[in-house]
Design a protein around this nucleic acid. Structure first.
Length: 447
RNA sequence: CGGGGCGUAGCGCAGCCUGGUAGCGCAUCUGCUUUGGGAGCAGAGGGUCGUUGGUUCGAAUCCAGCCGCCCCGACCA
């Protein structure tokens, strides 16, 4: 994946809106439309415009890197699947109207995949025969479709959505726990890298039972569910915790520590337990957005689909599996919910569409143009992603647009500053502005 | 799927009650003046009023069907 390192706004397709389209209610949806990130094509289905698509790919890439880091390997499965595969697991009839069903020209029954447990299990089944073929983990990042009765909240609850779903295959449930823990640890890191505080919360494990299902929740006023947790969870430094995914004991310790704090969604919440376990000043009750869900389900699919391997002593056993989802497109909205102000989006740097916004306050002025052209070239040389506002617009328009689209750093170049040999460097998040030479600004951004 | 609401220019809206073939703000285009936080003046372009049918001399407006979208609820990454 490579994103264009630099764009000029005079050439960029960035349809920002001054007013909010009436269909958008929550802040992330409003801002995504106003910032020209997405366009709604139909209820719960969106086109991703250049700016939005950059963000989506940044999120995707972080997820990809953290999956690769734990030895989970990327594949790509199709969006369309055959009904037969789903009949074998029994889910074709169970899934209900959320599954989009269609027919090809030969009247074969197909479906637009809402998830891929069947398919990945079938892929694994064909080639894995021995205990030497496990453990294995695979994931893909693909568009899914769930025909929600009521899509809403923009990309946060669309019908079509981009999702990372990973799957693990192990010989035993005990070994499955290690795979589960690897994913757990990767999740802690990937959310932290996006600038999010994602809190793992115990989730319903259904008929499988046990303690191997967690939802990852980020707190935001517009969250869809009520959550309760120990506020100390928000102080854990997960990004800098060095965790070796090959050290099962260490992973188990870290996860044990993280999950020892009280944290529950409304389905799992126990008020009495909450009050007895958490000191009053640390009791946090808030709204949350689910941005990931990991789940161990044993042989739920391997048995009906016949995914079996032979053990050392010659027995044939079904593999033990888990699935691990991250809502990639949802995260684009969720991050905005967690990071915005009255002027627009405030992107955390790792997912920002560009690191720097270069603002020419007087396009057409030879000194301003020359200074900006020079900075634009040098930023590119330094490998710093930049969006350059070279449009013939008034200063106010340029400031407002850059605040709206939330680029972390602005370099403001105007005739007044240039007369004194300075430009301004402004932080979107803090609003802090400093005057310095163009070279110092570059040096600061290159740090 | 239950309840509610809305479809009029790219966006936000008025007009509908009380029928006479469409208007405002922003955006867009042209010119002049401006130029460090969404400029001013003058002019211009842009609409089969969601759609189909009905009532009527005449429908954005009244009536019916259909389609689309949004909100609340139940359900979900």
């Amino acid at each position: 994946m490579r994103l264009s390192p630099a764009v000029r706004m005079s050439e960029y397709f960035l349809p920002t809106l001054r007013e909010t389209p009436s269909e958008a209610e929550i802040v992330s949806h409003r801002l995504m439309l106003r910032a020209g990130m997405v366009r709604q094509e139909s209820a719960g289905i969106y086109s991703w415009l250049p700016l939005g698509y950059r963000v989506l790919r940044k999120i995707e890439q972080i997820v990809r890197e953290e999956m690769d880091a734990i030895g989970c390997h990327e594949v790509l499965m199709p969006t369309l699947q055959s009904a037969d595969l789903w009949r074998r697991s029994g889910r074709y009839d169970d899934y209900g109207k959320e599954m989009l069903r269609l027919q090809d020209r030969h009247e074969r029954e197909m479906l637009y995949g809402p998830t891929n447990e069947e398919m990945i299990t079938d892929i694994f089944r064909e080639h894995a025969k021995s205990y030497k073929d496990v453990p294995r983990m695979m994931y893909h990042i693909q568009w899914k479709f769930r025909d929600e009765v009521r899509p809403r909240f923009g990309v946060m609850r669309g019908r079509e959505f981009l999702m990372k779903d990973g799957y693990s295959f192990d010989l035993t449930a005990e070994e499955g726990r290690i795979s589960y823990n690897k994913q757990f640890v990767a999740y802690l890191r990937l959310y932290a890298r996006m600038g999010l505080q994602a809190i793992p919360m115990a989730a319903d494990t259904g008929p499988i039972g046990g303690d191997m299902s967690h939802e990852f929740i980020i707190l935001a006023e517009t969250g869809e569910s009520q959550v309760w947790c120990d506020s100390d969870l928000l102080n854990l430094d997960l990004l800098n915790a060095k965790i070796d995914h090959r050290d099962a004991d260490q992973m188990s310790d870290v996860i044990g520590k993280v999950t020892s704090y009280y944290a529950a969604t409304d389905e799992q919440h126990d008020q009495a337990k909450f009050e007895s376990e958490v000191p009053e000043d640390r009791r946090l009750s808030a709204r949350g957005i689910e941005v990931g869900h990991i789940f161990f389900f044993g042989d739920k699919y391997s048995t009906p689909l016949g995914a079996k391997v032979q053990t050392k002593d010659g027995q044939t056993v079904p593999v033990q599996s888990g699935s691990y989802g991250v809502g990639v497109s949802r995260l684009a909205g969720a991050i905005i919910e967690a990071s915005h102000d009255e002027n627009g989006i405030v992107w955390p740097e790792p997912v920002a569409p560009f690191k720097v916004a270069l603002i020419n306050l007087r396009s057409g002025d030879s000194a301003c143009d020359a200074a900006c052209d020079d900075l634009y070239a040098k930023l590119q040389e330094a490998g710093i992603e930049v969006i350059y506002d070279d449009r013939e617009e008034r200063a106010g328009v340029k400031f407002a647009d850059m605040e709206l689209i939330g680029i972390p750093w602005q370099i403001i170049v105007g005739p007044k500053g240039l007369a004194n040999g300075v430009v301004e460097l402004k932080s979107r998040a803090s609003g802090e502005k400093v005057e310095l030479s163009a070279d110092s600004a570059l040096a600061k951004l290159a740090e």
